[in-house]
Amino acid sequence: MIRFEAVGKRYPGGGEALATLDLDIAAGEFVFLTGPSGAGKSTLLKLVALIERPSRGQVIVNGQNTRKVARRRIPQFRRGLGMVFQDHKLLADRSVFENVALPLLIAGYAERDINRRVRAALDLVGLADKAPRLPLTLSTGEQQRVGIARAVVSKPPLLIADEPTGNLDPALSLEIMRLFERFNELGVTLLIATHDIDLVTQLGHRRVELVSGQLVGDTGLGHGRA
């Protein structure tokens, strides 16, 4: 599902964010990406989402070499993956329903399909009764679940998350991770960057560790698969 081949990333005027990285994540895997701040976790995710392009090497996502995705094809490419952010990135002036509906609207779904799918996604994250609310009237944990509902509403085969539990207490964090595990059971590939080592250890999925842009540990392909 994701393959990094000798990928290096150097930011202009900055140091080496990633140095010659090789990584293979198969479809259906649940992978944690760990490491201290500045290790290159976010950079790796950005390369997957085509927010950044590699300085060297190739990144292949869902069979597509990101090098070959032209700028104007990037929106189409991004519709093929769901993204969850630490700060949710919800639109404050739109209701929970409208936020979750946005990816479907962009992809041009029919109205009744949108209604059905948004209800289902909100149901799945346990927020069916919050549809008409504005995001800022919800708790942080609930806002993150809205973000997750938006990421999965168009049923992408791949979900990436950057510190999705960064702002949550341990109980809520576990709840969010259990939600991710349910998606994984349904066949979604997950790549989650986190520094919450306790949680990672507790859940026992495959763990890829970065330090200073280098791969220093990988519990192995298929480790801890459900």
Binding site: R78, M83, K89, L102
Partner: peptide, 8 residues
């Protein structure tokens, strides 16, 4: 945000 979730 629109660009992140695939808005053309």
């Amino acid at each position: 945000v629109m660009k992140l979730i695939g808005g053309s």
